[in-house]
């Protein structure tokens, strides 16, 4: 890869890349350089939501974020939803809610949905169904019809301490 060196902070770890071209997106670096293939490429146009990650706590499209523009930011991918140091195989509550709620079918949208849901759940109050529907409206799922996903996320929000 041609370009500049950059160090990205992903899931709490500083990860250097030797050379990133200006046009290279965060999604490409996550997948091809870091092997973090949880974020998916469904459209590369910002529409499908499969590539959603959080930057400084807010869900954004990694396919529309240029990697060089992400230096000094906190990036969290689906691989980082379980806090570092948790026992192997541990799941975040929202991951568990989706898995148990039959809300995962093909799973291709799931990482992006989890990231959007995770950001929603940082709010304290339990979420209403309509709040969850609005919060997930940037993540297309072609399998589920959304109902079980929305139920699972709403349930996870009630279970919050």
């Amino acid at each position: 890869m041609t370009g500049e060196p950059v160090t990205l902070r992903v899931n709490g770890a500083e990860r250097p890349v030797a050379a990133v071209a200006p046009w290279t997106t965060l999604l490409t670096v996550l997948r091809d350089e870091f092997g973090l293939t949880g974020a998916k490429r469904g459209c590369n146009q910002g529409v499908c939501g499969a590539c959603t990650v959080t930057i400084d706590g807010e869900p954004v499209r990694s396919c529309l974020s240029l990697a060089l523009n992400c230096a000094d930011r906190d990036i969290v991918t689906v691989e980082g939803l379980v806090p570092a140091g948790a026992p192997a195989g541990a799941l975040a509550p929202v991951q568990q809610a989706l898995a148990e709620g039959n809300a995962v079918q093909c799973g291709f949208c799931t990482p992006g949905i989890l990231i959007s849901a995770h950001a929603l759940l940082r709010r304290n109050a339990p979420l209403t169904v309509d709040e969850v529907r609005a919060g997930l409206s940037g993540n297309l799922c072609r399998c589920s019809g959304y109902k079980k996903i929305v139920e699972a996320v709403a349930r996870a929000s009630e279970a919050r301490p």
């Binding site: 954004v60 499209r61 409206s137 940037g138």
Partner: peptide, 9 residues
């Protein structure tokens, strides 16, 4: 406009 992640960008 758009949806939450795009509104964040």
């Amino acid at each position: 406009i758009a949806n939450p992640p795009v509104r964040n960008m």
